[in-house]
Design a protein around this nucleic acid. Structure first.
Lengths: 256, 256
DNA sequence: AAGGCTTAGTGTCAAACAAACACTTAAAAA
DNA sequence: TTTTTAAGTGTTTGTTTGACACTAAGCCTT
């Protein structure tokens, strides 16, 4: 209970950044950069973008800053989902070598608050800067071994996303402003990892009022052009929780 | 990015402990104790039980320790729900006075990881110790102004509970081993803050398989004795998320 | 012993929803 | 003109929801 400043852990934020392109859900990962590196580091060692929380900012601000420094984007969907604070988070030799490379005490404990971000991946323009040495979008099925406990964190984010998507209409954050019904269905299918019936899907989406059709259709496709839709953002601005509810197989609903 | 130990924030855990008695949902709050207090402190200033995270423990362990130190209980439902890290969390004069009383730097930043606990309140025996100076169960509708940002934290916990209860069968953690259907319904009604139809509730609960009837009934009540039920724990041990789903008014369900 | 009081426990019906299912249409390409 | 590709469309059957009111069982009172 007394003052012991040197024993305090470091506090960081890490961002699990989801995107959707080429029919797959992807994570934006960075290669760790080592300023004035002296150590031999495996270039293929990826990590979640993150940084220590600064004195003057709260956790959300720290996460938004990390996201902006990497992608240049602001105002995007960013939600805290879990804090990770195992004292043994940093044990891999590679991690310790890297920490020495950035002149951080490899024995210091780091507690991290993990965020998930949903962005339309085509908007991202990787910014020059400390993260920029090779940021890549990797399909969630092909994530290699990551730094620290970042595999655990990204797995947690994916689970959280799957849950959230069933409660709130947030999947749209991953699509461009206007999209076709097939785009939307493909997205839900990848997130939920199961096939959905086209006709039932369309009916439910339209009846729900979450999306609105545009007069515009696709052009120049070699098949029947699909209608574009937009997400009905104004309906959900007041962040109503429990409003949307996508039923999973085997669930049951209670109450009138 | 360099080593700056004295600027690191403190990291604590706080527990929002829910109980259910006399038909109301309650929080277990403590009066802050000030060892060798010199300051004038308002005795009615309550707080969530919490403590700094120790070097050798992870976040879950820290929360479990706090819970055990206060209630003597282990192995109870305890789930992290959010981290709070506003640099201005500690601004009230009372809070700063208290921090001085326990010889902690009132200007040091504290980031806290909040947990919610669900316990059968009759099991609790307040332990002698640093928390013991007046722990009380207060109805959630009658929570006074709390220390730090603890009102925000407990509000967050209540929202998280309301959401969770619709996804996982966790309400049972608040009831004794065996309970009547009316107990259960009253619990759901207080958590969700709305009336439920008796017949529909019973039908749904029984069809769902979450509870099983016992041969035993109430004795000595001055009306028709109610049957006891138990929660079907083995069905849910593998922590299946998305398995249970209690529909709220106005929701819609998607997908086959 | 009878009647009153209190809470437990039960069934049906109509409306909404879920799940399964196959063919036609529009455009470009061959 | 035919082929290829993906978009778009309805119906039926079974299940779930939600609304609704009376009887049953025990204790207490008189």
């Amino acid at each position: 209970m007394s003052i012991s400043p040197s024993l305090n852990p470091h506090v960081s934020v890490d961002c699990v950044i989801f995107g959707f392109s080429k029919e797959t859900l992807r994570l934006l990962l960075i290669k760790r950069t080592v300023p004035n590196a002296i150590t031999e580091l495996d270039d293929s060692y990826y990590a979640l973008p993150g940084d220590l929380v600064r004195d003057n900012e709260n956790l959300d601000e720290a996460a938004a800053r990390v996201l902006k420094e990497l992608t240049g984007l602001t105002g995007i969907f960013l939600q805290q989902f879990q804090a990770f604070g195992d004292p043994l988070r940093i044990t891999k030799a590679k991690d310790r070598a890297w920490l020495k490379g950035v002149r951080q005490d490899p024995d210091a404990r780091v507690i991290t608050v993990a965020y998930m971000a949903l962005i339309e991946s085509s908007k991202v323009e990787i910014q020059p800067g400390s993260f920029s040495k090779g940021a890549v979008w990797l399909p969630i099925g092909e994530i290699p071994e990551l730094a620290f406990d970042h595999n655990e964190i990204s797995d947690g984010a994916l689970m959280a996303l799957r849950e959230k998507v069933q409660i709130q209409p947030i999947a749209f954050e991953l699509l461009p402003e206007k999209f076709t019904m097939s785009d939307l269905q493909a997205l839900y299918e990848t997130i939920l990892q199961r096939d959905l019936d086209k006709r039932n899907f369309r009916r439910k989406m339209l009846n729900s009022g979450v999306i609105a059709p545009l007069p515009e259709k696709q052009h120049g496709v070699s098949n029947k052009p699909a209608r574009y839709y937009v997400f009905n953002r104004n309906l959900f601005e007041n962040n109503q929780v429990g409003f949307v509810n996508l039923k999973m197989e085997g669930t049951f609903t209670l109450f009138n």
